[in-house]
Computed example of a mutant assay.
Amino acid sequence: MLRTLRRFVDPEVDRHLLASEGEFIIDEVVKHWWTLVLPICGLAASVVCFLAMIVTGAAWWLFLLLGLVIDVWAVVRMFRVHMDRFVITNMRVFRVHGVFNQHLATMPMTRILDISVEQPFLGRLLGFGHFIFESAAQDQGLRVIRYVGRPEQRDLIIQRVIQMAGLRTNLAHPR
């Protein structure tokens, strides 16, 4: 029972590894803290609604209902952020996300043709960006990964894994 419950509160990325093939996690990426700002503002707004109940008289129940709706929205949004993981292994990259229905998208390192890192102005200030993967497949389940913290460093990690696997030739030392 406890194991089943744990699957709903932890993304458990380890269970998606091909351990028998020697796959191991190099980096597990959680969403950047910026994705939690709006839900936290929602929680603050719900506190204001609850405080407004004191002075509104007969309409107190409207503020109670509004505060509860905002709380549920904020908690669900925060939980969705918690359950969204992007994982870099020695063999592939994959993303696990979803609260009730969990979705897994995988791309082997051999299929990655190009990685673009997009950093909007706010992302440059706060240290996040978005990954855009290009592969040989026309339609893929893993194309855009949003709100990746330290995107330049993570891009270098992926490039290093691809290089170490021998999937790309070393331009500095031709064979």
Rank of each mutant, 00 (worst) to 15 (best):
I115F: 00
W73T: 04
V117I: 02
F121D: 12
W61E: 11
V93Q: 05
T56L: 14
V30Y: 13
G98W: 02
Q102H: 12
M83E: 01
F79W: 10
F128V: 13
V87A: 04
T106C: 10
Q119K: 11
A44R: 09
W60T: 09
E23P: 08
W33Q: 15
H32Y: 00
D114I: 02
E118G: 11
A44L: 13
L38T: 11
Q119W: 03
V72W: 15
I25A: 02
H82F: 04
L36M: 13
N101P: 15
M53D: 03
A45R: 07
P120F: 04
A19V: 10
F94L: 05
V30K: 15
L38S: 14
H82N: 04
W61G: 12
P120I: 05
E28P: 10
V99Q: 05
A58R: 15
P108M: 09
A44I: 10
I40W: 11
R95Q: 14
V30Q: 15
V99Y: 02
H97L: 05
G98Q: 04
C49S: 03
V55S: 12
L17G: 02
E28G: 07
R15G: 06
E21A: 14
L17H: 03
C49D: 06
L126W: 07
L51R: 14
V47S: 11
V93S: 03
N101S: 14
N90H: 07
P108D: 08
R85Y: 01
R85L: 01
F79P: 01
I112E: 04
W60N: 09
R124E: 04
M83S: 02
R77L: 02
C41P: 09
W61Q: 09
L18F: 02
G42W: 00
V13K: 06
A105I: 05
R80D: 00
H103L: 10
W33E: 15
T110N: 11
M107H: 08
L125P: 08
M109Q: 12
W73F: 06
W34Y: 08
D114N: 05
G42E: 01
D14N: 08
H97Q: 07
L66G: 13
N101R: 15
W60M: 04
V55D: 13
L17S: 00
F94R: 01
S46R: 09
V13T: 07
F94N: 04
L36E: 08
L62Y: 15
F24W: 13
V55M: 12
W33C: 15
W34I: 15
H97G: 04
F128W: 07
V75N: 10
V30E: 14
C41L: 15
A58S: 13
K31M: 04
T106F: 09
R124A: 13
F63Q: 03
L126H: 13
